[in-house]
Each structure stands twice: as structure tokens, then as C-alpha cells.
């Protein structure tokens, strides 16, 4: 089965990695152009404190477009984030029209203006650890994200981020 869908699996890996580069470079429109009309995005984590699953951010395609357009109006920590992602598992449906993928990621933050730039700027810090749980729609036009769950291990979020991860 994997052999049958080998090229699709490679295509999906390429899509995930390309999306990381777009997000790293704050090219939000290019990232969201890779998503289907019914796309849903969520950042979630399990809390051992309240022993419950939690959602930290969530919304459909229109919400994400609106969010990314509005963020430049907000004050933010402009320290760049870089995603290091490895796709561990891709499963393509028998009919070849959908797929899911599991990737591990870490996000590094290279300090710019978040604390005292004279001291901290240029230092890279581990920002987040987690997994991407992705789903895809596959058609003649190619592969599109239909769902992304960012599943965080990190729950101490000192300044967080305005930006989708």
C-alpha cells in the first residue's frame, strides 16, 4: 500500500515542510493557500494540572485569514521563530483522496526584542516542543491541508506568541 502511494507520501512531506518555511517567513497567505476551504487549525495540550485536554487557539480558514491580517496592528515579540519538523508517519486512504500525517517539531526563538535586546538579541532559545497532527485532501489539483492539530508538550508559555505555530 505504501508503495502504491509512494509519490503521494513524498508530496505530503513536501507540503508539510513547505508550510513550515512559509510560517517561519511569516508568509501567512502562502501558508493558508495550501489549505482547503473547510480547513480547521487548533493548538491543543493536555494539562496534568487540571487533568483535561485544552485548546489554546482554534479556528477555520476565514478566522485564520482574519487573524493573520489583524496581527500587525498588535504589539508583539518580534523574535523570529524557526520550526524544525520531522514527518514520522504518513497514511494515505485506500481511495487516495485523503491522508493523515504525524510530525514532531521543535520551535526555536532567536531573541530580538522580547526582553532586553542589548543583552538577549541574537540568542536562540527552545520555544516549543510538540507534534503536528495533519489531515489532507488529495485531488487532481494536488494536496491541501484540511486539518491541523498542533499538540503541544510545552505548557509554560511565558510570552506565548500571537502567531500560529
Amino acid at each position: 500500500m505504501a508503495e502504491k502511494h509512494a509519490s503521494t507520501i513524498e508530496q505530503i512531506k513536501d507540503v508539510i515542510y513547505k508550510s513550515c518555511l512559509y510560517q517561519d517567513d511569516l508568509e501567512w497567505n502562502s501558508w493558508l493557500d495550501m489549505c482547503s476551504d473547510d480547513y480547521h487549525y487548533a493548538i491543543r495540550a493536555f494539562s496534568p494540572e487540571i487533568r483535561a485536554d485544552m485548546e489554546y487557539m482554534g479556528g477555520g480558514l476565514e478566522y485564520m485569514k482574519s487573524l493573520t491580517q489583524m496581527l500587525p496592528k498588535h504589539n508583539t515579540d518580534n523574535s523570529p521563530l524557526k520550526r524544525h519538523c520531522t514527518v514520522y508517519k504518513v497514511e494515505v486512504a485506500d481511495d487516495g483522496k485523503s491522508a493523515s500525517a504525524t510530525s514532531s517539531f521543535v520551535v526555536y526563538q532567536t531573541m530580538l526584542d522580547g526582553i532586553n535586546s542589548h543583552v538577549d538579541a541574537g540568542e536562540s532559545r527552545l520555544f516549543l516542543v510538540g507534534r503536528y497532527n495533519d489531515k489532507f485532501e488529495i485531488s487532481n489539483e494536488g494536496v491541501k491541508f484540511s486539518d491541523r492539530e498542533v499538540r503541544l508538550d510545552t505548557r509554560r508559555l511565558d510570552k506565548g506568541s500571537h502567531w500560529p505555530i
Binding site: 489554546y56 487557539m57 489583524m70 504589539n75 508583539t76 522580547g114 511565558d158 510570552k159 506565548g160 500571537h162
Partner: peptide
Amino acid sequence: NSIWGPFGRNLHEDLLAVT
């Protein structure tokens, strides 16, 4: 979350300011 979550519009700004 839209305002007060760790990825919300306001909380991050407050934390930046006190930092």
C-alpha cells in the same frame, strides 16, 4: 482564547509590557 489565551490578542501584549 481570542483575548486571554497564550496565543490570544491581549495576554501576550500584557506579558511583553511587564517583561
